[in-house]
Each structure stands twice: as C-alpha cells, then as structure tokens.
Simulated assay, not measured.
Amino acid sequence: MVRTPLTPWERQRGERFGALLREARGDRSMVEIAAAAGVSAETLRKIETGRAPTPSFFTVAALARALGLSLDELVVACAYGDEGEGEERQALSA
C-alpha cells in the first residue's frame, strides 16, 4: 500500500505538535518521557522534530498523559492552522 503524500498543512500541524511536546517536556529528558509513555526515545525524537508528523492516536494519547496535557488542549493547539476553523476552535476551547 502506497501512502498518500502529506499536504503542507499536515506537515505544519506535525511541526506544531512536535514543538508543543518539546515545550511541555521542559527540562525532562526525552528518554524519561518516552519511557513514561511507553514509546521509544527515537519515536519521540521523530515526532518532536516533525519527521513523524502523523503519529497514531494511541501514541499521542500516551505522550499527552506522560506530559500532563489533555487531548482537548492538543486539538486546540495543533489541529487547526492559523488560517481558521474559528468556530470549531472556539467550540472546542469552550
């Protein structure tokens, strides 16, 4: 099965997600967070650097839990680009 190439928006979303994870990780090591989430440090590294811009739901959920982030926060911060989706973003953040 051939994977459909990612759109620029999907790549940007992955970069936003990676930056959010790096920020939430703070001074904690990548190995510490990866172990707490049950993923490899290499997987976390790829996500943080945008090389894996579409991680699975369960990987996202595990990382969110390890970092003390809610999935709702991640949706608001990452799922919508700067160009809009304003009504949906407002509904999710309400």
Rank of each mutant, 00 (worst) to 15 (best):
V2S: 15
V2P: 15
R3Q: 15
R3F: 13
L6R: 15
T7A: 14
P8V: 09
P8I: 10
W9A: 15
Q12R: 14
Q12V: 06
Q12Y: 06
R13I: 04
R13W: 03
G14S: 03
G14E: 01
G14P: 00
E15H: 06
E15N: 07
E15W: 05
E15L: 10
E15I: 07
R16D: 00
R16M: 00
G18L: 01
L20I: 03
L21E: 05
L21R: 03
L21W: 07
L21Q: 05
R22T: 06
R22H: 05
E23H: 10
E23V: 07
E23D: 11
E23L: 11
R25Y: 08
R25D: 06
G26H: 11
G26I: 09
D27M: 05
D27A: 13
R28L: 08
R28G: 05
M30G: 01
M30S: 01
V31C: 02
I33Q: 00
I33H: 00
A34P: 00
A37M: 07
A37R: 03
G38R: 04
G38Y: 05
V39P: 07
V39G: 07
S40Y: 03
A41Q: 08
E42N: 09
L44F: 04
R45L: 08
K46C: 09
I47D: 00
I47Q: 02
E48R: 09
E48Q: 13
T49P: 02
G50C: 08
R51H: 14
A52N: 13
P53R: 03
T54D: 14
T54R: 15
S56C: 07
F57Q: 11
F58Y: 15
F58T: 12
V60G: 02
V60K: 04
V60S: 04
A61K: 14
A66I: 07
A66C: 10
A66K: 03
L67I: 01
G68A: 05
G68Q: 05
D72N: 13
E73N: 07
E73P: 02
E73Q: 14
E73D: 11
L74P: 00
V75C: 11
V75H: 08
V75Y: 06
V76T: 09
V76I: 14
V76D: 04
V76A: 12
A77D: 06
A77E: 13
C78P: 01
A79E: 12
A79F: 09
Y80I: 10
G81Q: 09
D82N: 11
D82S: 13
E83C: 09
E85T: 10
E85G: 15
G86Y: 04
E87A: 13
E87L: 14
E88F: 02
E88G: 01
R89E: 02
L92P: 00
S93P: 00
